[in-house]
C-alpha cells in the first residue's frame, strides 16, 4: 500500500446551479520517502488539491488515505508550508515556531521546546532574527521561518504549496537547496506544488502535471532519473533533464493550446452580414 493515496477524488465548490467542479477524478499515490512535484497553471486547483491532502478540506467524492487510514482533519504528521507564509504578524519568529512546537509536543518542558525552536531557527540561518516580527523580515526570510515552523513539528510528510512562488530567482534557488538539504537528511516524504517546471525537475523524483480546472485532473507522470545531489549548472547539460523538461513543457503547452482552441469553438459567430453591405461599394 502506498504511503499517501488519493482515489477518484472530486471536489465541487458551491451548490446547485452554481456548483463548479474544480477537481475531477484525481488519482495519486506517493511512496514513503518520495519527493513528488505537481506542476500546473495558476488557477488550476493546486491549492484545493493541497488542502484536500493536508485535511483543511474534504473531498466531495473519493477518499484520501494517509498510511492506509482516511484523512479527516489536519494532523501534525503532515506539515504544511503555505503559499503566503501565513506567519502570525503579532508574534516574533521564535514565538511563531514555539507555538507550533508546543502544540506538537505538549509534554516537553519549556526549555526543551525552546531548544527545538533554536535548532530549527539556526537550521534556516535566522538566529540573529529570532526576536524580530515578520514585517521586519524580507520575503525570503519569512518563507524560511515558515519552513522552519513546518519542519520543527517533525512531520512525517511535508506538503508545500508553491512555497517559493513569491520570491525572486536568486532567493528561490537558495531556498530550493535548503529544502532539499533538509529533506535529504531524514528523507521525509514530500509533496511540492509549483508552477515552475524547472523547480519541479530540480527537486522532485516524479513530476505530475495538473491539467487546468475546472474539472482539473492529473496528467501522465514524468520520472526524473537524475542522480542526487543534483547540480543546477550540470543539469542544464544533462540530456535526460533536457528531454524531460521539453516533454513536460510540450505537454503543458498542448493543454494550453487545447484550452485556447476550445475557447474559440465556444464562441462561433453566426454567418450573417449587414443588409446591403456589399451594395454600398
Amino acid at each position: 500500500m502506498a504511503y499517501l493515496e488519493l482515489n477518484n477524488i472530486y471536489k465541487t465548490y458551491g451548490q446547485g446551479d452554481n456548483a463548479t467542479e474544480v477537481l475531477s477524478n484525481i488519482n495519486l499515490s506517493i511512496e514513503e520517502g518520495e519527493f513528488v512535484a505537481i506542476v500546473g497553471f495558476t488557477g488550476s486547483g493546486k491549492t484545493t488539491l493541497v488542502n484536500l491532502i493536508n485535511g483543511l478540506l474534504e473531498p466531495t467524492k473519493g477518499t484520501v488515505l494517509f498510511k492506509g487510514a482516511p484523512v479527516s482533519g489536519t494532523s501534525h504528521e503532515r506539515g504544511v508550508i503555505f503559499q503566503n507564509y501565513s506567519l502570525l504578524p503579532w508574534l516574533t519568529v521564535g514565538q511563531n515556531i514555539f507555538m507550533a512546537v508546543k502544540e506538537t509536543f505538549p509534554k516537553k518542558s519549556k526549555k526543551e521546546l525552546n531548544d527545538i525552536v533554536a535548532d530549527y531557527v539556526d537550521m534556516v540561518s535566522l538566529t540573529p532574527a529570532i526576536n524580530k516580527r515578520p514585517k521586519e523580515l524580507s520575503g525570503g526570510m519569512r518563507q524560511r521561518v515558515a519552513v522552519a515552523r513546518a519542519l520543527a513539528m517533525k512531520p512525517e510528510m511535508i506538503i508545500m504549496d508553491e512555497p517559493l512562488g513569491a520570491l525572486d530567482a536568486l532567493t528561490r534557488g537558495n531556498l530550493q537547496d535548503e529544502i532539499l538539504n533538509i529533506w535529504g537528511k531524514d528523507k521525509r516524504t514530500a509533496l511540492l506544488i509549483t508552477n515552475d517546471v524547472d523547480e519541479g525537475i530540480y527537486m522532485a523524483d516524479r513530476i505530475i502535471p495538473l491539467r487546468p480546472g475546472p474539472n482539473a485532473t492529473l496528467g501522465p507522470e514524468f520520472k526524473i532519473d537524475i542522480e542526487r545531489p543534483r547540480d543546477k549548472t550540470e543539469m542544464n547539460d544533462n540530456v535526460n533533464f533536457k528531454e524531460t523538461r521539453n516533454a513536460i513543457i510540450e505537454y503543458l503547452m498542448d493543454i494550453g493550446n487545447e484550452r485556447k482552441s476550445q475557447a474559440k469553438e465556444a464562441f462561433v459567430l453566426p454567418d450573417l452580414s449587414p443588409k446591403d453591405f456589399v451594395n454600398q461599394f
Binding site: N54, G55, L56, G73, T74, S75, H76, G79, V80, F82, N84, S86, L88, W90, M99, A100, E103, T104, M153
Partner: peptide
Amino acid sequence: KDFINVAKVLKLGAFQKIFKVVLPSSL
C-alpha cells in the same frame, strides 16, 4: 483565513485559538 488555516494545521485548541490567533488579529 490564512491565520485560521494556521490554527487548524497546528491543531490549536479552542482556547489557544481564541487567545493566540483570533483576539490578536481582531485587536
